[in-house]
Design a protein around this nucleic acid. Structure first.
Length: 144
DNA sequence: TAGGCCATCTGGTCCT
DNA sequence: AGGACCAGATGGCCTA
């Protein structure tokens, strides 16, 4: 996405005046986003394909049982107890979900204006800057 | 070393 | 029943 040069002039500074850039602009150049470190398992995202290999057939209905009652209401509520295989599968799904969430954050990062030397925006910074950016663009559209 | 950020795991709840 | 979503906990890495 190409940003109009004029936008990158003073208007940008007006735009983000309520954004604390002192937080967002370190004095040093930024290394590439750090590779996720290996966790005690297989490491981030590394295992996303392995969900296919998970032997989900090992999970059976007998892995579940009914709990006596829920804490609220007294109405008996099923407590789901899952097998380790199902837990593993749920973990993989959660990893995939977070991966797609982060992909969306990356796409959003590329859409909001930043300086080339600027450190990679965190997720919260990305959201806040996107809000400011959208507000700014909306203002422009409404005035013309 | 403290604080921020992030990945991952986990259990609870919602939804199909 | 089971997947999606969510929030809390935990631990590792990085920077000031």
């Amino acid at each position: 996405m190409e940003m109009p040069k004029s936008f990158l002039s003073s208007a940008l500074f007006d735009l983000v005046s309520d954004v604390d850039f002192t937080e967002m602009m370190p004095s040093t150049p930024v290394p590439a986003p750090a590779e996720p470190q290996s966790a005690d398992c297989d490491g981030p995202y590394q295992d996303l394909t392995s969900i296919r290999e998970l032997d989900l057939s090992a999970a059976r209905a007998s892995d579940f049982y009914a709990s006596p009652a829920s804490a609220s209401g007294g109405k008996p509520r099923r407590k789901r107890v899952i097998s380790s295989v199902q837990r593993q599968a749920a973990n993989v799904r959660e990893r995939k979900r977070m991966f797609s969430l982060n992909e969306a954050f990356d796409r959003l990062r590329r859409k909001v204006p930043t300086f080339a030397y600027e450190k990679r925006l965190s997720r919260i910074e990305t959201l806040r800057l996107a809000i400011v950016y959208i507000s700014f663009m909306t203002d422009i559209l409404e005035k013309h």
